[in-house]
């Protein structure tokens, strides 16, 4: 009953005025649903590369969008590799070389562990509304679920992606699909989010498939195995000394 009322409230502007809802309002709703102070999760990343698939497991500690720490648990070649992101800086520790290396500049455009994600994508912690002007362009459906389609145009000409399109689940306030376009209109990356589960009172997609459209292969699956929101994270985790 409550769900019906909420859906009706969400659709009220359309019913009353025949207009789309405000994009900023939808983005705020997504934030309210998905954002948390901290997250600790383990995940499996499956890279469907041109020559077969690679499976990696990792544990991630994150605080907001600014600080995160990732430790790779498998496979053997990558085990013990750690990454630390503090604001706009990224360091990596490689046990085989016993080195802490800063990832910057040109390297940020490289793929993370051969996946369809770049370090730049991983590092992007700006709020969507700071970088893009968003408008709702209409309703659509993804996997049978009613969505609003948001079109986000970059405010600055030098943004990594000039246009984003997002399909937002109207009822659960989670994105189900995203497309990122270059200046010339070429589709560069596509993301589909699925297996949306209710965890600690919020809807959260636990499977994300990234596809770099310029790359050979069938994309990268990112599966969250377990996740804790607002967990206590010791301060030492987000410290360069913790990398070794």
């Amino acid at each position: 009953m409550m769900k019906t009322i909420l859906t009706a409230l969400a659709l009220m502007p359309v019913m009353l005025f025949g207009q789309n809802p405000d994009a900023r309002q939808i983005i705020d709703q997504i934030d309210r649903n998905m954002a948390s102070n901290t997250r600790v999760f383990t995940a499996t990343m499956v890279v469907h590369a041109a020559r077969g698939e690679r499976v990696m497991e990792m544990k991630v500690w994150s605080e907001g969008n600014k600080r995160s720490f990732t430790e790779y648990l498998s496979p053997a070649r990558d085990k013990g590799t750690k990454m630390l992101k503090l604001q706009d800086q990224l360091w990596m520790f490689s046990p085989s070389s016993d080195r802490i290396i800063q990832i910057s500049g040109h390297m940020l455009r490289q793929s993370v562990m051969g996946s369809d994600l770049s370090y730049e994508d991983m590092m992007d912690d700006r709020k969507l509304t700071d970088v893009y002007n968003a408008v709702v362009i209409g309703p659509d459906q993804v996997d049978g679920r009613d969505c609003w389609v948001l079109e986000l145009k970059a405010k600055e000409a030098d943004a990594a992606y000039q246009l984003l399109k997002m399909w937002i689940d109207r009822e659960r306030n989670v994105p189900l699909k995203e497309e990122r376009y270059a200046k010339g209109g070429k589709l560069l990356k596509q993301t589909t989010l699925s297996e949306v589960k209710k965890i600690q009172g919020r809807w959260f997609p636990t499977k994300v498939v990234y596809k770099d459209m310029l790359k050979v292969g069938d994309g990268t699956e990112f599966i969250i195995n377990d996740i804790q929101f607002d967990a206590q994270i010791p301060e030492g985790v987000f410290n360069k000394a913790g990398l070794r």
């Binding site: 690679r54 990558d78 990596m92 085989s96 080195r99 490289q110 793929s111 996946s115």
Partner: peptide, 9 residues
């Protein structure tokens, strides 16, 4: 990057 996409250090 390794041939299989892992990080090579």
């Amino acid at each position: 990057s390794t041939m299989l996409g892992s990080m090579a250090v």
